[in-house]
Design a protein around this nucleic acid. Structure first.
Lengths: 172, 172
DNA sequence: GGAAGATAGATAGCGCGTTATGTTTCGGGA
DNA sequence: TCCCGAAACATAACGCGCTATCTATCTTCC
């Protein structure tokens, strides 16, 4: 699509680590969009971003919204929204927890089960294999790096770390 | 913030490469948000995502929207929107190109120059250093990996690669 | 038992990436 | 010269991450 092979270094490349956030976001965006496209071309009509939610539900019968949030580590409003669109599509259903009216327990509908199964049969393996060929050549180093970064940020945010770095470099 | 250290493997971890898109997006999101927060705490009021655009403009006097798009590799409507908010904030200004009324040439205002300079003085170095400590220990492998991935996707999309992978694995 | 605080979830709205499509203007060929 | 396709940009709308805040319900404790 884009041909950057002959370019002089772009601003993003020159900014290097400072542009890391944007680059990661864009890369993630592309992967999700491509996966969604592949799914659709394979007759599975669901956004790639909804799949983790579906999987999480399917493995936690009787899960609540909070359970999914804890599992996926995604902010609650995001999960609520995804569940809403899945419910609109008839793929999941809620029931009020009789023991606690604040909670909603979530389950895949039959249609949801079927779609998830089809997605797994049709798309899981090829997409994972394609990614493995691009990424995995170097022995899973990328995923390991990401996990390190995530863990480091969980421990102390970049904001805090930057403050520390500044304090050390200019202790006037 | 989140404490996932004691968790059993989350769905995202188990999905592994299939969840790569989401994970990258989330990581990028966090980095951008943290950087914005650090900037604000340092008295520089601008979203981290706007900085690449500002830098690109400052290095290309007389640039048009398309020039920025080509430089950053971001979709044109995104650039247009960012320029709009920067213009609202009085940081950039447009002038119609007299030679071609379709084009708008873009320049930083004095306020924009000042803000960019302050951002560079105040924030660049600490943020880069903090990231380097988290990421760079392993010899820039992460950034190299990302560049590889980006180049590979530029060449053939994940969608196409997944189709290929499927064809090979099930050549019935 | 009733007020106060905690918890589950919903809602509102932003950030920044995307595609699809609409306008205006330019340039090149019949 | 005029028209038609291409180019530059704008607009609309979606995706999916986020924070902040609201409402309803439950729990706790006096």
């Amino acid at each position: 699509m884009r041909d950057r092979t002959t370019d002089t270094p772009s601003t993003l490349e020159r900014l290097d680590l400072l542009a890391l956030g944007t680059r990661l976001k864009r890369l993630g965006e592309r992967l999700q969009a491509d996966t969604t496209e592949f799914l659709r071309a394979s007759g599975v009509h669901i956004a790639a971003g909804s799949l983790p939610v579906m999987v999480s539900i399917s493995e936690r019968p009787g899960a609540t919204v909070s359970d999914i949030v804890d599992d996926l580590g995604i902010a609650q409003p995001g999960v609520t929204r995804t569940l809403g669109t899945l419910a609109d599509a008839g793929l999941v259903a809620f029931t009020r927890d009789p023991a606690d009216a604040r909670r909603r327990t979530i389950a895949l509908t039959d249609a949801g089960e079927q779609l998830l199964t089809r997605a797994q049969h049709v798309a899981w393996q090829p997409v994972a294999e394609a990614l493995r060929r691009m990424v995995g050549t170097e022995d899973r180093a990328l995923v390991t790096h990401l996990a390190h970064l995530e863990a480091a940020l969980d421990e102390r945010s970049l904001h805090v770390r930057a403050v520390e770095a500044r304090r050390q470099e200019a202790p006037r």
